[in-house]
């Protein structure tokens, strides 16, 4: 287990988070709208995970909500797993980089557009690793909206019962879904206690604080149970140029806002 990291040690995570925001803004700017809010809320989560924990080609990475796949494309380029030029095809006709993740999505081992399905696939990966007797880990990224889907809890039940300690869930709690803030539609709290009641360890942290995220993932990986890191986040985080009332699920990015956002990010 790593010791609580110094600021310098976390710089790669911060840089990756910044790159996720900038590359995502550029991808979405070409279309004028898209899943930018997902990248803004999860940038630090993916930054810490990819910079410090996930070992590509060895550990399994699941991005359950395919709307976050834009983060994988950005990470893929940053880690040299895919060609930078491919990002220009994001969401275009005939591209393998679809706006909602598909079977052609690079970088990840599994992504799902139909929400609430990814954790079950991740449980399958973790079971396979156990059957293989390999120390391969499974990192499953899921969203708070997916807690409305019953299948998420079916998977949580199974993983808790079988003590699948090779499974770590990163849960982006951005309180955003298509029809508005999640808490105005259904109550999903208390998130951490719900997971604990299923036999999981749960760590509830500020999802834009890389130090807090690092410490939580460290504990989650070390846990003898399956564990979830709940990252409390905002879909507008990190770009002041966005209107405060922007729809975080599907952000509109007209040219003047896009230019301002990208200029702002490039200035950091």
């Amino acid at each position: 287990m790593e010791e609580a990291s110094s600021e310098d040690q976390l710089d790669p995570a911060r840089e990756l988070a910044h790159a996720i925001r900038l590359r995502s803004a550029r991808m979405v700017a070409r279309h004028g709208f898209g899943y930018l809010g997902q990248a803004l809320s999860s940038a630090e989560t993916f930054g810490v995970l990819a910079a410090h924990w996930w070992r590509p080609g060895r550990d399994d990475l699941v991005i359950s909500p395919g709307h976050y796949i834009i983060c994988a494309y950005a990470i893929g380029v940053e880690l040299g797993l895919m060609d930078e030029a491919a990002l220009e095809t994001y969401g275009e006709d005939g591209s393998t980089l679809e706006a909602i993740g598909t079977e052609s999505s690079p970088v990840v081992d599994l992504t799902c557009g139909s929400l609430g399905q990814g954790l079950s696939g991740a449980v399958g990966f973790a079971l396979a690793a156990r059957l293989d007797g390999e120390p391969r880990r499974t990192y499953a990224f899921i969203s708070d909206g997916e807690l409305q889907e019953g299948q998420t809890w079916e998977a949580a039940t199974f993983a808790g019962h079988h003590h699948l300690d090779g499974l770590t869930v990163l849960l982006d709690a951005n309180n955003s879904q298509v029809d508005g803030p999640i808490d105005t539609i259904t109550t999903i709290e208390p998130i951490a206690d719900r997971w604990r009641s299923f036999g999981w360890d749960a760590f509830d942290v500020d999802g834009h604080d890389v130090g807090a995220l690092h410490g939580a993932i460290d504990q989650a990986v070390a846990s003898e149970r399956p564990a979830v890191v709940i990252a409390r986040t905002s879909t507008l985080r990190g770009i002041d140029a966005l209107p405060v009332d922007a729809d975080g699920h599907f952000i509109k990015l007209p040219p003047e806002v896009a230019d301002a956002a990208i200029t702002e990010l490039e200035g950091r």
Partner: peptide
């Protein structure tokens, strides 16, 4: 639902 999803992962 979970059983089918796990089967896919396996």
């Amino acid at each position: 639902a979970n059983l089918v999803g796990m089967a896919g992962g396996l």
